[in-house]
Design a protein around this nucleic acid. Structure first.
Length: 556
RNA sequence: UGGGGCGUCGUCUAAUGGCAGGACACCAGAUUCUGGUUCUGGUUGUUGGGGUUCGAAUCCCUGCGCCCCAGCCA
């Protein structure tokens, strides 16, 4: 094996081989074929990255094709959302196609199969078809309509298309083998009668092609060379091949690979729809949803999703990726590219008793220590500030080295302060801290070289702006919600925490919607589109790694 | 059960007859004006049995396990 052939996944190897033998004249054409019956999720993102990625790698083209063969489930809204999501991920399709564009051509091909004696109109009901299909062990029984004459089949099929028969009364079926060990080959239904309005073709048709019949034709018509799909279609490939062979048309190669699964997540469109319809989340773009629109709102970058897919790999074994891997890649992207700001989520007031009353000074803060080009900004400091409630403990355990009575810490980019008094309310709750600052530590370092063990983030009480912050956690409490008897039983009750009294540095007023910002020591956040001039909402994309939280856990 | 597919660290994935490697996770330490970042080190794996071979994750035989299929959904 040459160095070039190393580390290539099995689909690349197949295509390399095809290019060696000239199977498709060294052309590579792929397609992403979603059904417009729901929103795209992170699982689709893998498929998108694979099919667009392959096309790009081989200098080929990739179409976005809506597989809109079932008007009952499909809507224009989804078409729009899917296009937006694919673009957001950073891919450009060659042609925008619809299966419905080919309905006439498919009809003509069906007529050809009927004429060849390869298809027939069947009058069995859905129940009767099921009952005669046989089982995994038993062969099926042939339909009593299986041996109609070509003329009779042609006549009935045309009348089906004209709308002469009610829904469900007849189907067109491939005439293959009712005893075939592969159930898909037992005279599969090609067309059903559906008097339904289609988002694209309106009332033009009342018969609609089934997936197996339609999909290979769509691929063939578009000149797709490598038709990539997920594992469950492996059983369908013989049928895919059969139709194309009988028709004698251009024959793409179907290749199946494993879809993405993520721990603590569900991918089933049906179940996601249930979360939306049952108001368990706030719509398809709820930041807790694994939909691309939800992740976008949450603050994921398309770059991090694409990088994740690079690392996921392409193979045939079932897999469950750990969500921590995705988060790790996200953090690494955000660490490099997000500006830092200070915000206090659970404020505790601190009065610096020896700081001049009414005085406000501007201090310089670095925007992003990982990026020299990001520059710095000024932040106001004053006598009264807020710190994070969790950064103070009256009676700290051994490994806690933040603020405590008598202890000195640094306020980031500001001064060292020492805690002298703890003020409590009647119930014994800490409501305020009285501290003194050392003027010799301006900017955050001591002239005498003394060290402190902790640096706290803070916000000037006088200048703070107010915000509501939404803390998101994983939607499910168990790693594999799909395996539960009822996935709704394992929803994480703490997937959303709303903090209404957060204090931010003034600069944050002008934050750009959707732009990721690191709140120092807390995590990455972005301004939610719900925000207005009067009201700021921030979504937490992902918290920073928190070693202290881990230590805290060990105490329990 | 008939058919189709798949088995490599906890999780993903390399190695395709020649030292089982990487990432995430986990553990320990160093650095640090973010308990972040960065850096260093560590634990953990070829589904069982047999065979071929100087040599097997890889080839052969034979078990075992897991996933998918009985929509007029895709």
């Amino acid at each position: 094996m040459t160095e070039q052939n190393r580390n290539r996944h099995f689909i690349q190897r197949i295509i390399d081989e095809d290019n060696l033998t000239g199977k498709f004249d060294n052309k590579v054409q792929t397609r992403f074929p979603p059904e417009p019956n729901g929103y795209l999720h992170i699982g689709h993102a893998k498929a998108i990255c694979v099919v667009f990625g392959i096309a790009e790698e081989y200098g080929g083209k990739c179409n976005l094709r809506f597989d809109d063969t079932n008007p009952i489930a499909e809507e224009e809204e989804y078409v729009k959302a899917i296009k937006e999501d694919v673009r957001w991920l950073g891919f450009n399709w060659d042609k925008l196609c619809f299966a419905s564009d080919y309905f006439q051509q498919m009809y003509d091909y069906a007529v050809q199969l009927i004429k060849q004696g390869d298809a027939y109109v069947c009058d069995l009901t859905a129940d009767e078809i099921r009952n005669t299909r046989g089982s995994l062990k038993e062969p099926g029984k042939e339909s009593p309509f299986r041996n109609r004459s070509v003329d009779e089949n042609l006549d009935y099929f045309k009348r089906m298309a004209k709308g002469e028969f009610p829904d469900g009364s007849r189907t067109l079926r491939g005439k293959i083998d009712m005893a075939h060990p592969n159930l898909n080959m037992r005279d599969p239904v090609m067309y059903r009668i559906l008097h339904a309005e289609h988002h694209n073709t309106g009332k033009q048709w009342c018969i609609y092609p089934m997936y197996d019949w339609a999909h290979g034709l769509e691929d063939s018509i578009e000149g797709v060379t490598h038709s990539l799909c997920s594992l469950e279609f492996e059983d369908h490939r013989p049928l895919y091949d059969w139709f194309l062979d009988r028709l004698g048309v251009f024959h793409p190669q179907q290749i199946e690979f494993a879809r993405l699964n993520l721990s603590y997540t569900i991918m089933s469109k049906r179940k996601l729809k249930k979360l939306v319809d049952g108001d368990y989340v706030n719509g398809w773009d709820d930041p807790r949803m694994p939909t691309l629109s939800g992740m976008r709102r949450r603050g994921f970058t398309p770059e991090s999703i694409r990088k994740f897919m690079d690392e996921v790999g392409v193979a045939k074994r079932d897999n469950v990726m750990e969500i921590t891997k995705l988060e790790s890649i996200l953090r690494s992207d955000l660490n490099k590219h997000s500006q830092r700001r200070m915000a206090v989520l659970n404020p505790l007031k601190v009065i610096i008793t020896n700081y001049p009353e009414g005085h406000i000074e501007e201090l310089e803060a670095i925007n992003n220590p990982e990026d020299d080009q990001a520059g710095s900004r000024q932040i106001p400091f004053s006598k009264e500030i807020f710190i994070e409630r969790g950064d103070f403990m009256e009676d700290p355990p051994k490994k806690f080295f933040r603020l405590a009575p008598g202890r000195e810490v640094r306020l980031r980019y500001a001064y060292f302060i020492q805690c002298n008094d703890v003020i409590k309310d009647d119930n014994g709750n800490v409501i305020e801290l009285h501290c003194t600052y050392d003027p010799e530590t301006k900017g955050g370092s001591a002239q005498d070289g003394r060290k402190v063990k902790a640096t706290l983030h803070w916000v000037s009480a006088e200048k703070a702006i107010h915000a509501e912050v939404r803390l998101y956690d994983r939607l499910f409490a168990k790693p594999n919600p799909d395996s539960e008897e009822n996935f709704l039983d394992v929803l994480n009750p703490d997937s959303l925490t709303i903090l209404k009294n957060c204090k931010c540095e003034p600069n944050l007023q002008n934050a750009e919607i959707g732009k990721q910002i690191q709140f120092e020591r807390l995590g990455y956040f972005c301004k939610d589109p719900d925000s207005s001039n009067d009201q700021l909402f921030f979504n937490r994309t992902v918290p920073l790694r928190d070693t202290w939280a881990k230590i805290e856990k060990q105490f329990k």
